[in-house]
């Protein structure tokens, strides 16, 4: 068998007899020996370094450890609720501090006085009935 044919044999695919022949061939053939040595050196040079843990975590976060939708949106929901409360508070405060115009004030006062009068009147009646 020529070097050209030998070199095409993958180590794992050789029969035990072919492997023995290959080893014998290596002893006598510098170019095949060199090829074999370089293949091994490449294998040693390319021993994989560890993938960054952050990448693995990122994969898990998108697959097996994916959080439920409501948890992923929790911050947004909490923020939204807080914004809503603040807006409602500001609106309420604004409402309380907005001055009445004159017409509104007269209407309010008259209605209020009337209500107060009816209340006072009914309470007075009750008082008189008791005594």
């Amino acid at each position: 068998m020529t070097c050209k044919e030998w070199i095409k044999f993958e180590e794992g695919e050789k029969t035990s007899q072919q492997l023995a022949q290959w080893k014998a061939h290596l002893k006598t053939c510098a170019s095949c020996r060199e090829h074999e040595a370089l293949s091994q050196a490449i294998g040693q040079a390319l021993v994989p370094s560890a993938a960054p843990a952050t990448l693995v975590d990122a994969v898990f976060a998108k697959t097996t450890r994916k959080q439920p939708l409501w948890i992923r949106w929790k911050k947004v929901l909490v923020g939204g609720m807080a914004a809503l409360f603040i807006a409602a508070g500001v609106y309420g405060f604004h409402q309380r501090t907005t001055p009445f115009n004159q017409a509104e004030l007269v209407t309010y006062m008259s209605e209020s006085n009337q209500d107060d009068y009816y209340t006072f009147s009914s309470e007075l009646d009750l008082f008189e009935q008791e005594f």
Partner: peptide
């Protein structure tokens, strides 16, 4: 099992 090899 495959993270290092695939990343490399």
């Amino acid at each position: 099992r495959y993270k290092n090899a695939l990343y490399q």
